[in-house]
Design a protein around this nucleic acid. Sequence first.
DNA 1: TTTCACTTTAGAATAATTATAAACTAGATT
DNA 2: AATCTAGTTTATAATTATTCTAAAGTGAAA
Lengths: 135, 135
Amino acid sequence: MKKIDILKKLRSSKLRPTKQRVEIAKFLFEREKTFHFTVESLNKLLLKKSISKIALATIYNTVHAFKAAGHLSEVEVRGNKTYFDTNVSNHHHFYDSENSELIDIDANEIVIQKIPKAPNGKKIKNVEVFINLKN
Amino acid sequence: MKKIDILKKLRSSKLRPTKQRVEIAKFLFEREKTFHFTVESLNKLLLKKSISKIALATIYNTVHAFKAAGHLSEVEVRGNKTYFDTNVSNHHHFYDSENSELIDIDANEIVIQKIPKAPNGKKIKNVEVFINLKN
DNA sequence: TTTCACTTTAGAATAATTATAAACTAGATT
DNA sequence: AATCTAGTTTATAATTATTCTAAAGTGAAA
Ligand SMILES: [Mn+2]
Ligand SMILES: [Mn+2]
Ligand SMILES: [Zn+2]
Ligand SMILES: [Zn+2]
């Protein structure tokens, strides 16, 4: 992913490309594979990688703006912290509770044969499958 | 469910049947249908229903003991609060984000045809399906 | 009854997140 | 280029959910 794409992500998230936001965006989006993280883990990784330390509030704000713009998704994981995901396509997860690790499962790797119909006036928005792992 | 069963649940959770715990247990387990709740919602409902007010710490402790004993399960729901479930069998959920409501789906109402194999040395513990609803 | 380990409880402590408001800055305007 | 201003960053406070603490209370065994 090129710098121009980082700027696009920022602009489409209604964020001016400041030093901090570009650093966060590059860290999140300039990678091959999906990245699952919490604000805490992201903060720690940014501290190691970055020259300047970025305030937690800035990380929260930026991550939430990316989420609102659809550049990040939120994943439900057991525990009290909020997990984010750079993979915003419809997909599923393995969850390894030993080390609280999420692993992507491509949507076409799971086929559901039978599914109940939505209650009363409701419709199905999407289906998420979690495969919990053990050793 | 009879009173004797309530006492069994308490004893098997290594809890003495005190006034508070019996009240909580009866409220949770003497019902026909699954009950999904947070500690906060349970507390509010107990305040309405009960004569005496039970300390939050007691509710937390009791709910956690029931969970540890396998009489309650925890459900992952978007948001920061922890959701509990009186249905401890293997089952799935509709999630209606409009009103943060969970609806049970019996395990045999969902059939998965294709599923990826677990990574490296891991095994599949269980599979949870969430069907998110919209209007 | 007396005893004592177990309980309850109010309040303090912790952890994640959000709000605040003062200092700072990107980028538009002159 | 200097000025202006809306948007931004930051430290810190506030909030929320949960857990801890330690003092006062209680069930039931002896
Ligand atoms: Mn969670
Ligand atoms: Mn949750
Ligand atoms: Zn993912
Ligand atoms: Zn359920």
